[in-house]
Every structure is written in C-alpha cells, then in structure tokens.
Design a protein around this nucleic acid. Structure first.
Lengths: 226, 226
DNA sequence: TAGATTGTTAATCGATTAACAATC
DNA sequence: TAGATTGTTAATCGATTAACAATC
C-alpha cells in the first residue's frame, strides 16, 4: 500500500529516519549525508537516498541533507505537525504502562482517555486520567476527539472493544491483544504481539546475520492487503 | 532474508498462521481449506497455499489441510517444539508487565531471569523471580541458559545492556527501547517501538483501507539487511 | 577546477497474483 | 464420475541495488 505516492516499504522506514534525525538535531548537527545516515540507521546509503527522494528534494548535491529541513519534511509526511489524541482500552499491567509511557515520553501523542472492562478498575487513575467503563467508549471517544485507539485488553474482550471503537468513528487501531480483529475496510489495524515477535526471533536462531543497529526498519509492508 | 529456504515475506506470516491454527485446533476442527484460513487470517487463499507449500506438502488436494499436522509443521518451522528461555532486562512498568504476561500466557517461552539497573528494584520479585543487578547479566545468562533477551530499559541504558547481553553469548534480542542498537553481525535484533507504530498509523489517517482482520502479517522483511 | 554527494534512471531481484494441471 | 482443493508454474508487480549524470 502506498501513502500519497510513497512506496509501502519506504513509508515503513520513515519512523527510523525520524528517530535518527531527532538524535542528530539534539546533538546540534546541521548537515548529514546519506552515508552518515547509513551509519545511524544501518541501512544502505543508496536506499536512504532513494527513500528520501520520494519525499521531495531535501538534499543538496555535493553537500548533504539539512537536518532541520529533512526533519520537517519527515514530520510532515508522518503527519506529526499536529498532536494525535490517543485512547487506551484495557488498563491492566500492559495498558497502564503503555498509557504512562506515552504520556511521559511522546509529545506528538497525547493520551486523552483510558477505559477498562472491569468494574474494579473503573474510577482509578491511570496516566493522570480517570478510568472509564467500556460502555462509555462511543460517547467519550467522540467527546474527546480521539484519533487512535490502543487495545490492551485480554484477547476475549478485544473484538467487542474493537466493535465499539469502530462504532465511535475511530479509524486507527493499534492492537496488543493476541487475536485477529475483524473491522470494516475503512479502519486500519496494526497488530503488535509479543508472542509473534518471539516466534519470529526463534526462527533466526541459527543462520542469521545482522548488519548493525536496529534491524528494524519495521517493514510494515502489509498494513493491509485487501 | 531467508530461513532455510523460506522467503522472508512468508516467514513473517507464519506466526499469523500459527495463531489461526491454534484457535482452530481448540475449537476441534480437523480440516481446514486455504479458503477457510483466508477468512481467519485476512490473507488471500492463493497466498496461503503458496506460503504453506514452502513448508512441504501438508495439504491434500481436493480435501484441505489437516489442522494438527499443519500445526506441527508450523511449530517445527518456528522451532517451537522446545521451550525458549527468555530474560527480561529492565523491570520498570513495561518490563514487569512483559515478564508477567509471558509467564502467564506463553508456554513456549519461559522467563528465567529478570534484571534491572536500579539498585532500588534489585531483590524485588517480578514474575516470581528475584530481580538481579545488571552487573550479573553475563554470569546469570550463561548459568540459566538464556536463549533470548528482551530489553525494556530507558533508552540511555539500552546500548550498555545490549553489550552485556552480547557478551553473555545471547544472540536474539527483542528491543523495546526507542533507540538503534549496535551489535555484531551474529546477533539478531528486533525493535518494537510504540512511537514508531503510532507514527506509521498516523500516516494512514486518510486514504486507507483494510481487508479485514489483523492486518498484521507483521511483515518482517528486513530482519536485517546487512 | 576537483571532490563530494544527491537524485534519477536502468538492472536485478524477490514477492504477489493468476491460472491451471494434478489429485483426492 | 463430478466437485473440490492443493501445489506449481508462469506473469505481473514492486522493491532493492547499481551506476552515473547533475550539481553544489
């Protein structure tokens, strides 16, 4: 799938570039070459040049890329010029830690609602917010203008929660529950599963190699195939 | 990258098939067609047939796939016939919840060591285990026969921890810290980053579509490029 | 000018899709 | 036999890599 003409494989690498550039920016660097970015990301320089060329002409031949300019270009492409309003559903250990982590560490994403299915947890505070009952999902999501929802419930509750999220008009879902969700075509679901990752790692037990650095161009080729 | 002749794109989808088949097995199904698996996974039937053909001949023409047999084949490919010994480094909110979750929910992965860099947490219990000081990483990893390490420390501590993990001979790392790690060629690192995923989701804000189900063939195309 | 580095074009490679023959 | 469904081959598509001309 493409995002505005950008190949899927390239789009999946943009967050990696963004992180590298943020580090560079903090360290005060003005310029960076594709070769320099290669050392930071572990990707090949020619691939970086090709990827960045899809965003437009941010580099200067013979010179390199202006760090701030490229950072801006990437932020625009990733639509980070705005703050995204995030809801977390499921306030167990994982959900609470995700909510807390987001609140502390990410300025582009603001947790603005937390929900739980257990009466025991409703009313408690998580990430500074009062935990709401799952029944309030559609109303509260709309009221608070939520853009994305994170599902961190037990697997059996996840589909029901997903249905409520869809009902409330939210179209971006990050799913930590180890189950496949059914959603309408218009909704994008991204699954993150610890077991899946460990299983994939186990396959690499022998016969592997590693360039260097964070493998993880996190290659999101199939956001969804259709 | 291939694993024993299996294309990378296919390998990345195997955990998805495994989950579907486990559900089927629990529900008592004996046989499943590629069409049936398509409904469960959201992938196309022809792609499923092609993927499974790489594992060998598990289906019977005119009939379908034997659920248990295919489950066994997938488990073998994913090397799940054994229990993998996992260490968690970093016992903050995220690390503790990952350790607890793994202990409870995953039979193929056993948490057998937990570490932290903060003296405050050393000695506490996480997932039933005593939290050890990071200085003991090399010794304890070896003693306990750890196969994989999960890094869930703050970003600034992650590289140092990764170095100790590598020193202890562990070659499979799942990194939750939002930073690129430098490791030798022989080590496989998989990065999981909440911010990266949210950024990627944000790109899909408009102009998206979703087949159904868990998009997430979790397309791990670049475990590492080289 | 000479050296550096991008942006782009062309070549290679791998993955997806389509089609169908094999076979239960 | 007729219907169903796999496994495989061939066709298409997209991504990676290589090479180099443009340009600072």
């Amino acid at each position: 799938m493409k995002c505005e003409g950008i190949p899927a494989a390239t789009a999946a690498r943009l967050p990696l570039y963004l992180r590298g550039l943020r580090e560079l920016s903090l360290s005060g660097a003005d310029l960076i070459s594709s070769r320099g970015l290669s050392e930071i990301t572990g990707l090949e320089a020619y691939q970086i040049r090709k990827d960045l060329s899809y965003l437009g002409s941010f580099g200067r031949r013979g010179v390199g890329y202006d760090v701030e300019e490229l950072l801006q270009g990437l932020s625009d492409q990733l639509r980070l010029s705005r703050v995204w309003r995030v809801a977390v559903v499921g306030c167990g250990r994982l959900g609470s830690s995700l909510a807390a982590h987001l609140s502390i560490a990410e300025r582009n994403f603001r947790v603005c609602a937390v929900f739980d299915c257990s009466a025991r947890r409703v009313g408690a505070k998580v990430a500074g917010l009062e935990v709401l009952s799952w029944e309030k999902i559609p109303a509260a999501m709309r009221e608070r203008g939520v853009d994305m929802a994170i599902i961190a419930t037990p697997p059996l509750a996840a589909q029901g929660v997903a249905d409520l999220i869809v009902e409330s008009g939210v179209r971006l879902i990050l799913n930590f529950a180890p189950i496949s969700l059914s959603v309408p075509e218009s909704v994008t679901v991204r699954g993150m599963d610890l077991a899946d990752e460990l299983q994939a790692l186990s396959m690499h037990s022998s016969a592997k190699r590693t360039g260097r650095a964070r493998d993880s161009a996190r290659p999101t080729v199939s956001w969804i195939k259709k």
